[in-house]
């Protein structure tokens, strides 16, 4: 259990170090250029203005911590969720069993995850990441499975007729054909992670959730809005960067 916690903490640490290494303005410009290059010029402009605002509000360090937690959580959730989704699509028993479990995971109030995470891993970012992974893993599992199940049987039959084995059918037919659905799962996973990362400030995770929680405790509307705005800006950027189009 400790090794697991150490591993997660190490992972978050690496991402955080990488993100915090360049000057904030340099990172902002690089991200803006990436958004411009891969999406649209308007998104690039939004990234530049939005992140500059966060920097100006003095929320930059919190933003980096939040981003590092999201990246780590999403990475773990996808690394587990997509393979599970593939299995779920192919295995009827697993499909049947997983359905109520996923329902449970998606509908239970997210605060409830915090308690066992806190009990096992104590206060801090690691508990936050683990609670986030559990909360955000359901959509990639479900949407990966759905995408694969919706692949036209004729395509799989064509693959088999040309002598493709299980692995070739998966890699060359099922995954590419299911890609739109899988990408939607990834997008959902990112957005859920973001909302959970903020909530997990309640168990001592750092980041933008911390000032939100504090503003609530000391009834400081201004602070709450500043931190909340940071969350919104990150949310919009991540959503637009990882949507399908």
């Amino acid at each position: 259990m400790n090794q697991f916690a150490d591993f997660i903490s190490w992972l978050v640490g690496i991402v955080e170090t990488v993100l915090a290494y360049p000057e904030p303005l340099v990172l902002i410009v690089v991200l803006a250029l990436l958004a411009w290059q891969f999406k649209r010029a308007s998104l690039g402009l939004f990234v530049f203005l939005g992140l500059s605002l966060v920097l100006n509000l003095g929320m930059w360090d919190n933003l980096i911590i939040t981003l590092a937690s999201i990246i780590t959580s999403v990475f773990i959730a996808l690394a587990i969720g997509i393979p599970l989704g593939i299995l779920k699509a192919h295995n009827k028993v697993l499909d049947y069993i997983s359905r109520p479990i996923l329902d449970f995971m998606q509908t239970i109030p997210p605060f409830v995850y915090l308690i066992p995470a806190l009990m096992f891993f104590g206060l801090g970012n690691v508990s936050g990441v683990i609670a986030t992974v559990i909360f955000a893993i359901a959509p990639p599992i479900r949407l990966t499975a759905l995408g694969i199940k919706q692949v036209n049987d004729e395509l799989e039959e064509a693959g088999q007729a040309f002598g493709a084995n299980w692995w070739q059918v998966l890699i060359k037919i099922e995954l590419p054909a299911a890609m739109p659905s899988i990408l939607m799962g990834i997008n959902q996973c990112i957005m859920l992670s973001l909302s959970m990362v903020v909530i997990s400030a309640m168990i001592g995770a750092g980041g933008l959730g911390k000032p939100v929680l504090r503003s609530l405790n000391i009834v400081n509307i201004g602070l709450g809005f500043e931190a909340g705005l940071g969350v919104v800006i990150i949310a919009v950027i991540l959503d637009r960067m990882f949507d399908r189009a």
Binding site: E154, E157, F162
Partner: peptide, 20 residues
């Protein structure tokens, strides 16, 4: 599988082309 790879080519009613 090897037999299918070497001996057969198959053409389908609804084409079954890979759209991607």
């Amino acid at each position: 599988r090897n037999y299918r790879r070497q001996k057969y080519g198959m053409v389908f009613q609804n084409f079954a082309l890979f759209p991607y």
